[in-house]
Write a protein that binds this DNA or RNA. Structure first.
Lengths: 188, 188
DNA sequence: GTCTATATGTGGATAGAC
DNA sequence: GTCTATCCACATATAGAC
């Protein structure tokens, strides 16, 4: 029994993900999400008791999506190839980054101004990325401490490039940082 | 006639700068700013016709503050020393960065989700930084195109490090990126 | 220039019928 | 499970006396 239209709960999370990325979390209202999902506003509260609960589900969904990507990259045995696949994502998404920034970076920046449990939950997105990056550097033969530093450097450069790309609506900033990292990994 | 208390307009901008950095622009209300400035809410509108007008003044003030810093760094003739002074700012401010992130980076990220004239105005903060950085690399002897790339790389690394430092409330991410840049500049 | 009171709009959340 | 109507809090902005 194929379902061409996902169930309401899924639709609400998907719409929340898109609108939060485009407009920011605070500026995205439950009324926006409900309308774009084709769900009446009052019905949203059957699935999510508060906006924050929807935010938590949104972070969970993003974590799952990135976990799927990492699983795919793990099919390649070469850790440098895995790192390059991660970096290539920035290049492939350059136009989206120019329009709305990195979905993870902008979400973390915004939520950590408010604090609270949702902010900490969003930080797990970066944490999971860092852990995976660290594993790849260990496979290359780096020590534990150095692997953590190198992982942080990769993510810092890509996030910084994404921020400039977003601010100037110019994909080149992120692409240049990505290419710089690829050369740097090649020579490691 | 020394004035220990700045005039109202100045106080409003200063308070707006602090609260916007701590809480974000959207979550900071004019009532917050008025209260913390010791100005009645209705009186705010005598100085700024809209919240956006206050936002513009805030960006202008930040541009002026960073311009003053750059003027001080320009007193040193050595371009590498100037670059190091810029990078050192990240290290000196590490605890503030851990609590609230980079004032410029978080402001640009938040405002560019909404778009509009204020977002473009905020981008001038990064633009002025990049122009100054580019000048230093030209002084070192780099070409125009390469100087622009190197300037973008410095800012990307520091902003990315600041974002991770903010997200994890851990100063080390920004400090490591700063130290890495210092070594990189030394060997240029 | 200053300040109180208030208008206006909007967002999160609830009540309660179906 | 679904949906309409509505409550309540709060943010921007205005009116108008002083």
């Amino acid at each position: 029994m194929p379902r061409s239209v996902p169930d309401k709960r899924t639709r609400l999370i998907d719409t929340a993900a898109r609108l939060t990325h485009e407009q920011g979390y605070n500026r995205t209202t439950l009324a926006d999400i409900a309308r774009e999902s084709g769900v009446p506003l009052g019905n949203v509260y059957y699935y999510f008791s508060t906006k924050e609960a929807l935010g938590e589900a949104l972070v969970d969904r993003m974590n799952g999506a990135y976990e799927s990507l990492r699983a795919r990259w793990n099919a390649n045995e070469d850790p440098k190839a895995r790192l390059n696949a991660f970096i290539q994502m920035t290049i492939d998404n350059r136009d989206v980054l120019a329009r709305s920034g990195c979905p993870v970076g902008t979400l973390c920046a915004e939520l950590h101004k408010a604090g609270g449990p949702l902010a900490d939950h969003a930080a797990t997105l970066f944490d999971n990325i860092l852990k995976w990056l660290e594993q790849q550097f260990r496979r290359i033969g780096k020590s534990g401490a150095e692997s953590r530093d190198l992982a942080a450097h990769v993510l810092s450069a890509l996030e910084g490039g994404s921020l400039l790309t977003h601010t100037f609506h110019d994909p080149r900033f992120a692409v240049r940082e990505a290419n710089r990292l690829k050369e740097w990994i090649r020579d490691l």
